[in-house]
Structures are given as C-alpha cells and as structure tokens.
C-alpha cells in the first residue's frame, strides 16, 4: 500500500515481563529525528572551514538560509522586537526544511507527513503566541478579535468569525504542511508503483517506461520545491501570527 511508507515501526526496544517499556522504544520516527539533528549540526558545525574567518562553500548555503529567514522575519514582524523571535522561527525553519529534504530520499521516512507531530508543533506555536498576547496586552488582547470601525450590529458576528479563524490556526498551520508532504509522497509512490508494474510486464514496456519516468522526475523536482516552500510558508505564517499578537491590529 502507498500508505505503508508512513508507518511508524519499532526498530529497537526493551521487553520486560515486569513493565511495559514501549515508551522508550526507538522507532523509525525517533531515528529520523536524530538523523535530522545530526544533519543540522553537521551543516552548522562541520562547514566552518576549520574555524577560518571565511567559511566553506557549504557554509555559504547556511548563511543564505539564515539571511533569507532573517529578512523574512524582519519584514513580517518588523518593529524592534523581531530579533527576539527570529531564533525560534529559524529553528522551526531549519528543522522542517531538513526533515522535508530527508524525506525526499528514497527508502527514507517523511516525519512531517505525520499530522499528530506537525499539528502538535502548530498547537504549541498557537498556544505560545496566545500566551505572548495575554502577557503583552492583558485583557486588551481580546481586541484582536474585533477589527476597528466595525458597526455595533456586526460585532457578535465578526467576533465569532475572528475567534473561529483564530482557533482554526491551530489545525490549519500543521495540516497545510503535513497534507502537502503526504500528498506529494503518496503521488510519487503511486506513480512509481504504476510505472514499476508497467515496466515489469515485458521488455517493450520496460523500454517504454523510461518516458513516463522523466515525467516522474519532473514531479520529484516539483516535490523538492514544495518541501522547501512549505517550510518557508510555515515560518511566514508563524511570523504573521506572532505579529498579530504582538501588535494586535
């Protein structure tokens, strides 16, 4: 089944007749989380050109990512406080970006396609921004749900709509990412499966199969673009939510 690729499997675990140790099992999800951490650390620590003043060519890529996210956060949040939230946004970006790229390698595992994981992250962000809002503005934070200049008669309607859209952010932020990644991976695997069946039929179909393979290659390129764009979109929305709570309207 194309959905097999998303299964979480135990790779290493402890069994005991006394107690259930399954909560410390190392799963493929745990393994890929560690791989992600390793890749991020490697990209940041091993590319500094032996601590020389000018980094290596790999280091430049990290610098470019840093610069892009910094400019985005500066534009989105602005003001004087954008710098407080930049490390958080950058950490989210580099984590999701690396996870997405790792998931594109064949035989690997797509962590960001797991709704429970990604929506948990988006919920944490939503909760954090709400706490920041109440901490900064107190009860005036509720002003976020009422656009200025609203006629009195429309106030209940608009407040309920705004409240709904505010709560919907919890799900929408995470769902957008995981749905995109899941859809992309499913599409590639389904197309791959179809092509494999076609090519396995006989020598003629095997040779003909190379044509649609080029189309799949195009879709893979597109998927790579989506993985990068989704990580960026996550950070843009996160910054926008932060801006909303910091400055209200």
């Amino acid at each position: 089944s194309p959905l097999e690729q998303f299964e979480i499997r135990d790779l290493l675990g402890l069994t005991s007749p006394m107690m259930d140790f399954s909560f410390i099992n190392i799963t493929n999800f745990g393994l890929y989380t560690m791989i992600t951490l390793l890749v991020i650390l490697t990209m940041n620590l091993m590319t500094n050109n032996y601590n020389k003043l000018v980094g290596s060519n790999w280091y430049l890529s990290q610098e470019m990512i840093y610069d892009t996210i910094m400019n985005m956060v500066k534009t989105q949040i602005g003001g004087k406080v954008w710098g407080y939230y930049f490390p958080l946004v950058y950490t989210f970006f580099i984590t999701i970006f690396t996870m997405n790229l790792i998931s594109m390698i064949p035989y690997s595992f797509a962590m960001t396609s797991h709704v429970v994981f990604v929506v948990s992250m988006s919920m944490i962000i939503w909760l954090g921004t709400t706490i920041i809002g109440f901490y900064t503005h107190g009860l005036k934070f509720f002003g976020l749900f009422l656009p200025t200049g609203t006629p009195l008669i429309l106030v209940p309607l608009l407040v309920s709509i705004e409240l709904l859209s505010y709560f919907a952010r919890t799900i929408s932020l995470g769902l957008r990412l995981s749905a995109n990644i899941m859809a992309g991976h499913l599409l590639i695997v389904i197309l791959g499966g179809l092509l494999f069946n076609l090519m396995a039929m006989n020598i003629l179909t095997f040779l003909l199969g190379f044509l649609p393979m080029i189309a799949i290659l195009g879709i893979v390129c597109l998927e790579f673009a989506i993985t990068i764009i989704q990580a960026y979109v996550w950070c843009i929305l996160m910054s926008s939510y932060l801006k909303d709570t910091i400055y209200l309207h």
Partner: peptide, 18 residues
C-alpha cells in the same frame, strides 16, 4: 527487492545528477 521504490531511486538518482 525490486519494487516501486526502485523507480523512485532511479528518479532520485536522476534528480541528483541534474
């Protein structure tokens, strides 16, 4: 084992080559 992932391996190799 040759399966659908083999096709993806080929496309990934092609992408890496590109």
């Amino acid at each position: 084992v040759l399966n659908a992932e083999t096709i993806l391996l080929c496309t990934f190799t092609g992408f890496s080559f590109l």
